[in-house]
Write a protein that binds this DNA or RNA. Structure first.
Lengths: 346, 346
DNA sequence: GTGAAAGCGCTAACAG
DNA sequence: CTGTTAGCGCTTTCAC
């Protein structure tokens, strides 16, 4: 790597002092420099192929123009859109993101957050919120700016941007009730996640309001396998079988598909299934999945904007804002009226 | 953010000089320091919650322990596994990755690569290789270390890690021929991508070897919509209709599904379809997709290891290695013997 | 409007 | 084994 031109090289070529080059090249201070000088410096910089060393700048200004993004697993299809949303808001302000995957492990998360902090990120975006969120708590204690996205962390007053989970579940239940379903089960996400508890609570409430017979079973994780396992359990007694399954997310719903198929049951003919998130390609599944669309890109973009606001407003005060973005039901092929013959209450 | 402890603070508390702290805390130089002193320094560091500022370190050592990863679009499901593979190889060596999305735009890519370089990344991993790859060419000219992954860039002698595209296509064609197909079309990826040309060439060759009647139509992009558009064209004359479609990747195959459905044709009953990549959830599509599994995680990991090798071996020479990882056919539900009645050659 | 000088936090010679 | 001294490349007072 041929050694890169520094500000001193440019200064020499332009016949001015390094300080002047710095001022001339920075849009904010460019006004304080003679226009002719600015032009001369620009020319010299271009000729040398000069690009500022942002590491050096960061050391001086103690800001890296970098934010850390903490996700459980990039491989979960809801996160890439969120990350792109984050970047879309960051890029115009000159910030970039560095992403880490925790795989849901708290100890790993603390290590990763530490490494992010060593890299002097200016702030953090957590997509990993949960109830005993050690990493986030520690970050908060150290007075570092951060925001939560998608899920929030109970008791940690970072601002959060989330989808309207309760409204989503209400829409699902209304749809199912309109179709004629009366016996419904909810595959609830882990209780340690706000999405898990909020969706489950909304499920219980709405079932009561609609006079549905609703049951909640709790998943240990948002995964396909958990969905399969839980659904298998729920299908036990044919007489007592639910006519619809409301999954806590699309992965659990996919697991329900698998269990149904393994039991020789058809979806939606025998059992309706609905997911949550509308992950990419949900419409291409077998059957196309009825689910709740969560605007993950917007969630990310909004979270990034919020963080940028915190960073630029030098005020230290953290206001525990909670931005709730609307979601909406997407009806596809995994829901249908219940089979009257078999589904009639015993 | 309470101002963080620096090495000077630790030195003061431990009653030693800053240089000694630096040595004591660095595993490589720790041996040159009295064990008692090391212990004292460690204690002081811990007490102050000291974490080294890697920006400052980077400025001094001119290495950021960061690599840039250039992808077309993180939202394309083949990239998250690749990125995780990259990170899995980087993390143990203390490196982290910063990812940028080009959306296939060359101008954007150059801008993004520039910003990566300003951030002093130690090297680059391009998942965006194509024939007139301006950004990569420029990087090469500047003597910066980089590797290509998944696709390579013609004429740019960076090392590359790719899947065995030709073998994959051969397996697909052998499978189709064994099923009894004789008239096959290939939805080829863009000719500017190595994956596009290699797969298309292998298709032509193998068709000849097997005595199949093979036709190639070229896609403008690896997208679902292109797949739909192309398939619609190919379906034109029922008498001349292919019995199987070999798509350049899973997205094109998915587009073929859509077109078939729109035409009232069933897959695999009327037309077989095969994809390439085995993207996540390909087995959950309607029908479950027969495709070629490409080990994206391993591709990423291998590429990262290769880059690390380049970075640590101070030798400037670039050896244009080309690592080809095996792929394998995954037979699922989108391929079946051709319908004898309709498929009989006119 | 521009030069001079200091210093961000760290590491790497060089002494001793 | 440890202290001293420089300096990475940049921005930012402070003079003039």
């Amino acid at each position: 790597m041929t050694t890169r031109a520094t500000i001193a090289d440019v200064a020499r070529l332009a016949g001015v002092h390094a300080g002047t080059v710095s001022r001339a090249l920075n849009p904010k201070t460019e006004g304080r420099v003679n226009r002719a000088t600015v032009a001369r410096v620009r020319r010299a910089a271009k000729q040398l192929g000069y690009t500022p060393n942002s590491i050096a700048r960061g050391l001086r200004t103690s800001s890296s123009l970098t934010v850390g993004v903490v996700v459980p697993d990039l491989t979960n299809p809801i996160f890439p859109p969120m990350v792109r949303g984050i970047e879309s808001a960051l890029a115009p302000r000159g910030y970039s993101a560095v992403i880490v995957n925790t795989d849901g492990r708290d100890d790993l998360e603390r290590l990763l957050v530490d490494s992010l902090l060593q890299r002097q990120v200016d702030g953090l975006i957590f997509a990993t919120g949960h109830s005993e969120h050690a990493a986030a708590a520690e970050v908060f204690e150290r007075g570092i700016k951060a925001v939560m996205v998608n899920r929030d962390a109970r008791g940690i007053p970072f601002p959060a941007v989330v989808g309207d989970d309760a409204a989503g579940i209400r829409d699902v239940l209304d749809h199912l009730a309109a179709l004629g379903h009366r016996r419904v089960v909810h595959l609830a996400g882990p209780a340690s996640f706000s999405t898990g508890t909020i969706r489950a609570a909304a499920f219980v409430t709405r079932c009561a309001e609609l006079g549905l017979e609703g049951r909640v079973v709790a998943a240990a994780a948002y995964s396909v396998d958990e969905g399969t396992r839980l659904t298998r359990g729920v299908l036990g007694d044919p007489a007592d079988r639910p006519t619809a399954i409301v999954a806590g997310n699309d992965l659990l719903a996919l697991g329900a598909y698998h269990a149904l198929r393994a039991e020789g049951l058809r979806c939606p003919d025998d059992v309706s299934v609905v997911g949550f998130n509308d992950m990419p390609f949900a419409g291409d599944f077998q059957p196309p999945m009825t689910t709740v669309r969560v605007p993950h890109f917007d969630l990310g973009a909004e979270a990034a904007r919020l963080l940028l606001g915190q960073l630029e407003a030098e005020a230290t005060g953290v206001s525990p804002v909670r931005i709730v973005l609307p979601v909406h039901l997407v009806v596809r092929g995994s829901t249908a009226p219940p089979d009257q013959v078999h589904a009639a209450p015993g």
